[in-house]
Amino acid sequence: MSGIAVSTTINGDDVEFLCQAEETLLDVLRDRLGLTGAKEGCGTGDCGACSVIVDGRLVCSCLVLGAEAEGRSIETIEGMADGEKLHPLQEKFLEHAALQCGVCTPGFLMAAKDLLTRNPDPTEEEIRFALAGNLCRCTGYDKIVRAVQDAATVMKGA
């Protein structure tokens, strides 16, 4: 069985890969491209740990086929920081201890980034509903919500 040749853009870089029809974008990112920041918590779109942004839309990469990446522009957690300069959301997640085990963190950061792009000044309720597709079992979400609130304040001021 020959693979499907896919040309795409990931974090601004041109990337080409071969994949099988049934492989998900998450499989491709993790197993073919070595981008293991996106995690598989469920494989069914219920936990958000594999969140990436495709053409400006937040998606679960476990619910996208690798072949669908053709011609798209993909953002993953690996592209969030600018060199060694962390994104304000990354800084605030650290400052507020918005992570314990950290396995859900890449997904939360992508979802929070998507939220603040669309809504730079969200209420607590808007933050909570925007992040409802990302499960965290460690924190009870309190510090995550506070980190996003604080990052929004910082980003507005920037």
Binding site: L58, C60, A111, A130, G133, N134
Partner: peptide, 9 residues
């Protein structure tokens, strides 16, 4: 239907 992530699809 679903989450923000699912909404995008």
């Amino acid at each position: 239907i679903g989450s923000k992530q699912v909404q995008g699809r």
